[in-house]
Simulated scan of single mutants.
Amino acid sequence: MIAETFNLAAYCGRIGFSGELRPDFATVQALMQHQLRSVPFENLDVLAGKPISLQPDDIVKKIIGRQRGGYCYEINGLFALALTALGVGWQFVAARPMFYPARRPRTHAALVVSLAEGQWLCDLGFGSYGIRAPLRLDVLDTPVPQDDDTFMLTQEEGDFILKALVEGEWRSQYGFNLCPVEWIDFAPANWMNSTHPDAVFTQKPLIVRFTEEGRSILFGDHFTQVAGRTVSKRTVAPSELALLLVEHFGLKANECSFHPAK
């Protein structure tokens, strides 16, 4: 995956990272956390009926140039470009979402990063119960606190399973294996997620931005803020939405092509 327009310095400026760049775990974790807190998970272009391009240069233009967010293919695609520029090895993995009542195809794109310490799951595009830092693949069945959430990797029938502790119960988020996946393999899933009437992304706004204290979530017209163990929820009026996107999700007003929930 190569983008002629990708510039590591511009990427670091977009995510607010000013530290030293090294091809090591500390840098990968820092970049991941800075990107999570700067680039929102969002589906505004899907709701506006705009095609979601998987061309790497289009992703750079959208997220860095226009300071937008995106969903898993765009957000993790951008992180893959940064890893390549940093000199860190990685591979895409195709993950099967597991929180739906019915079995789903492997439509989620995540990354496995190879470092001197081993292989790590990195995922910046899974929304609310997404991990906040890399998870080591060879540490299984061990709860890992991240911010005020707790995650765990297990293995079942040849797949790694990412689980999150939700209201005192371990809930499976998605499963994946290390079979080689190419970028082009996500094209059908991207088309389905951005056009199918039953896909969650085509139905209502879904926007998530992580903070040092927790996360902000807009789902439909419901706005939730999580700060530590404090959770506040409210319904937002259509007249508030554009300003909400600017203040809480870092999106520019002239980029907020917003369509209300169906």
Rank of each mutant, 00 (worst) to 15 (best):
D198K: 13
I52R: 03
P40M: 04
E42P: 04
K50W: 00
P197C: 12
I59L: 09
A164E: 00
I64E: 01
V226N: 05
K204V: 05
K204R: 15
A199R: 00
F249P: 02
G65A: 11
S239Q: 14
V93L: 05
S38W: 06
P97K: 09
Y71A: 03
Y71V: 09
G69Y: 01
Q173A: 07
A102I: 10
R104F: 05
R106F: 05
E240C: 08
F210C: 03
G158M: 07
D198M: 12
D159L: 13
P143S: 14
H222F: 01
G127Y: 00
C256F: 11
F41V: 03
A102Y: 13
R132H: 12
S232W: 02
K204E: 09
F17I: 06
T142A: 13
T211E: 11
P101Q: 09
A242G: 07
R68M: 07
P145E: 04
R103W: 06
R66G: 03
H222K: 15
Q29N: 14
P197Q: 15
F249E: 02
T195F: 11
P56S: 06
Y129Q: 09
G65C: 09
G69T: 06
S172H: 09
E240N: 07
L83N: 02
V144K: 00
K163T: 11
A187W: 08
R209D: 01
T27A: 08
N76Y: 06
K62E: 13
A253K: 14
A199D: 09
S232V: 14
A82D: 07
T154R: 08
Q119P: 04
A3I: 05
R234Y: 11
G127N: 02
R68G: 01
T211L: 11
W90C: 04
G89W: 06
A187F: 08
D221C: 08
R136W: 07
F219T: 12
M98Y: 08
W120Q: 00
G69M: 01
R136I: 04
L8A: 09
A237C: 09
L81V: 02
T235F: 11
T154L: 04
P23E: 10
F201R: 07
L137F: 03
F6M: 05
K50E: 13
L243F: 08
G228Y: 00
V113H: 04
T27G: 06
A3M: 03
W120T: 00
E20S: 11
T211K: 11
F210H: 13
A189P: 09
